[in-house]
Amino acid sequence: MSVDYPYQDAFDRLLDQRDMATATHDEYTATLKDFFHYLENFNPTYQRTHQVNQLQTTDVQQYLSMLVTARQIKNQTYNKILSHLNVYFKFLFSHQWTPYLPTLDLKSKPKQPAQPINYQWVDNLETFLRDERLHVYTRLTLLLIAQGYPEQAFLKPGMTAQLQPTNWSPAARQFLKRFQAFIIPLQQRFQCPDWFLKQRAAADPHLTLPGLHKYLRPDEAIIGFSLSPTVLYQGYLINYLRRNPQKTDQEVIAALHLPPDSIDYYRRLAQRAD
């Protein structure tokens, strides 16, 4: 069985002993896999020796700097990745597999203040649907969230194949006609009627949330605001509540499929919105 980074089997056993959630374990794996992939391609020290015990603080700093400048990660993500690397190198140091702790002098970044949630994007949906600079998956994401579907719903296999958009706006239906030219070849290749599909051969053709982010993230520079599906959905909920202040909690919960204990939270956000 191939490994994604040095001492992976031993480190996996340590993580298993900590009885952490599978998703958290996967985050460690993704961080370390990406870190060593970066070293193999861009770090002369590692390219020359492929020895983890030669890595020093500057090598980790270069990787973290790349994440900030090239991928534009937020401070919260930066701190999580640094924490993953710190746990990994402390583990190696404790087993004398490296004489250094290259993360020892690296500091976490301060927590960034919360940005106001953009709820006005929903009002400009038709403009975004016509914007050919945006990837079709970006525009489809905006469209489906504006119909009230969060990402965990529209990325679920079988869900989009069941949608009936006949009652959607003319602009939405016009976009979907253009979208068909993109998606039909993929549906035929994978023999799958869903709308979010990978563009390369895969055992599971369905696009994952990280895969969707690869389309959304570059388009943020074009559209000028966060395209995180979670943030977009919060904006949709706030927009709905501002447009329907007369509706009771029960009506809103039924219309938006919200859990009852979250309605007060979103009402407060709507009241604080500019």
Rank of each mutant, 00 (worst) to 15 (best):
M1L: 11
V3S: 13
A10P: 01
F11R: 07
T22K: 13
H25E: 13
D26P: 00
D26N: 11
A30N: 07
T31E: 08
L32R: 07
Y38Q: 07
E40N: 14
N41Q: 15
N41R: 14
N43W: 11
P44A: 08
T45I: 14
T49R: 08
H50I: 00
V52S: 07
Q54C: 05
L55R: 03
L55H: 06
L55V: 03
Q56I: 06
T57Y: 04
T58M: 08
V60A: 02
Q62F: 04
L67P: 01
T69F: 01
T69A: 10
Q72R: 14
I73Y: 05
Y78R: 09
I81R: 15
F89Y: 13
K90I: 02
F93N: 14
F93D: 09
F93S: 12
F93H: 15
H95M: 08
T98Y: 05
P99I: 06
K107P: 02
K107T: 09
K109D: 05
P110Q: 12
I117C: 07
N118C: 07
W121H: 06
L129S: 08
E132L: 03
L134W: 06
T138A: 04
L143I: 02
F154I: 05
P157F: 04
P157N: 02
M159S: 04
A161P: 08
P170S: 07
A171D: 13
R173E: 03
R173Q: 15
Q174S: 15
F175H: 08
Q180Y: 11
A181I: 01
I183D: 03
P185S: 09
P185M: 09
R189G: 04
Q191W: 01
P210Y: 09
P210V: 06
P210I: 12
L212P: 04
L216Q: 07
E220D: 04
E220W: 09
I223Y: 03
G224M: 04
P229C: 00
Q234W: 00
G235Q: 11
R243E: 04
R243K: 13
K247Q: 15
V252S: 02
A255T: 14
Y266F: 15
Y266Q: 02
